[in-house]
Amino acid sequence: MTLLSIKNLSCSITSKKEKILPLYDINLTLSKNETLAIVGESGSGKSLLCLSLLQILPSPPISIETGEIIFKGQNLLNLKDKELQKIRGKEISMIFQEPMTALNPVFTIGEQIVEMLLTHENISKKDALDKAEYLFERVKIPFAKKRLEAYPHELSGGMRQRVMIAMALSCNPLLLLADEPTTALDLTTQAEILTLIKELKEAYETTMLLVSHDLGLVAQYADNIAVLYAGEFVEKAPARELFSAPKHPYTQALLATIPILDKPKNLTAIKGHIPQGNERLSADILKSPELYLQRGCNFAPRCTYALKKCFDETPPLFSLNAQEQVRCWLHEK
């Protein structure tokens, strides 16, 4: 069953110099219970994708230009603020990279979680407090009751992330957006938190959009993976396929740059750098799509397989089968 589908979503960033598209023509579907990972390097647009789902983009300078976000049959982009607020935090919730930015430093974490429960659920304050305590136990926060009285800065990074998870799960969301949920944490804490998220996700039957730059992480925790490069999907595949037989030259190159524990290999660096500034897609293409078609593959300057065609014509996403899609001329059918 499809829970979420994003169709032709494009966002723009307007600056004095130019107007670019940090996300262009994003299409994806998430089925119930699925964990879909979005991977990409810094600036590829992962966080913007999450923020546009919740429509909490910093606007200006960023705005959604085109597309639909269909959640449970309705287009979120057509909803009024009030209706959206009901969905945010209740049916769709989010875990951020740095929990400190999402928690209010002047309120105790108990106050914050109770507040959240009271907004979304029709329960008494006493019940909300009980539930908050229960949730803290659920995310394995020791001394749960006492910890409710703590202020965010009094907790360790790992504990804060647990609080975030408790809050994100407090209203039984159907969809959980996790943007780099463990990047700020230590290795062993990361492992604990990831196991916790996975366990809770399974118990609560939550669907998850997991955003990460860490291919190791998504290999272990995602069912399906979509690789984002400079605002466009270049490959979508089940985790098994993506790691055993990556199809897109960028995915292949990315995997070749990462050392693997106890499997010595020579690392091959990718030459050049990610498109930046005016190398990014200009918003002009929204008005004249033929400009987009002539731009060429955006990985071409760094690709070892690039042909002349790659610089002159933009490859579409080719479907290899029901599950795998690749944006590369080498896979043209």
Partner: peptide
């Protein structure tokens, strides 16, 4: 050993396959 266990390798591990997740609790 604990540290090494926490390392996440970019490789597909069979035991993570969704099909296998049909556990009792489900």
């Amino acid at each position: 050993k604990e540290l090494l266990k926490a390392v996440l390798s970019p490789e597909f591990k069979q035991e993570n396959d969704t099909l296998k997740k049909e556990s009792v609790d489900k």
